[in-house]
Amino acid sequence: MTAFEHELASVMPRLRRFAHGLSRDATDADDLLQATAERMLRARAQWEPGTNFVAWSYRIMRNLWVDTARARQRHTSVLAPEEEGLAIGMSGAAEASVELGYLMRAMERLPDEQREAVALVMIEGLGYAEAAGVLDIPAGTLTSRLVRGRQALRAMLENAS
């Protein structure tokens, strides 16, 4: 296995989680993960060994997600109302995935710029500087989006309980 393949394999679990932080449901998340893996394999020549592979892969996923934002908004706007509610998991779904689906729907209600900040810091555990680097925004911008996103999530989860 080449160094690149090893890096790719080891980063996939984290990318899978990040994809769920960004996406409206597990199907979209798996699509995004698949597209990211393919993009990374095609772009492998652009990665310089010794540089931060994880940040590079987060950036690729985030950019793919941004590219599909317009299609995503159209999709969301035509959703039937009952799909927006707290649906129960399909057959065989564990309780954990009901909770996950619930939190993903809460995340989905955030504006994209807040959602990506929250996903990188609160779910992926990146530091503020690192997250700002992935998103290519100043640290202060990252912080304010992160705080607004967390305040909105807290309000949503408190109202729901």
Partner: peptide
């Protein structure tokens, strides 16, 4: 409240961070 929320997201998303 913020600590609980972070822990709640951690717990729900942790299972995804495996292949």
């Amino acid at each position: 409240a913020h600590r609980d929320m972070r822990a709640r997201f951690d717990a729900a998303f942790a299972t995804l961070a495996m292949p």
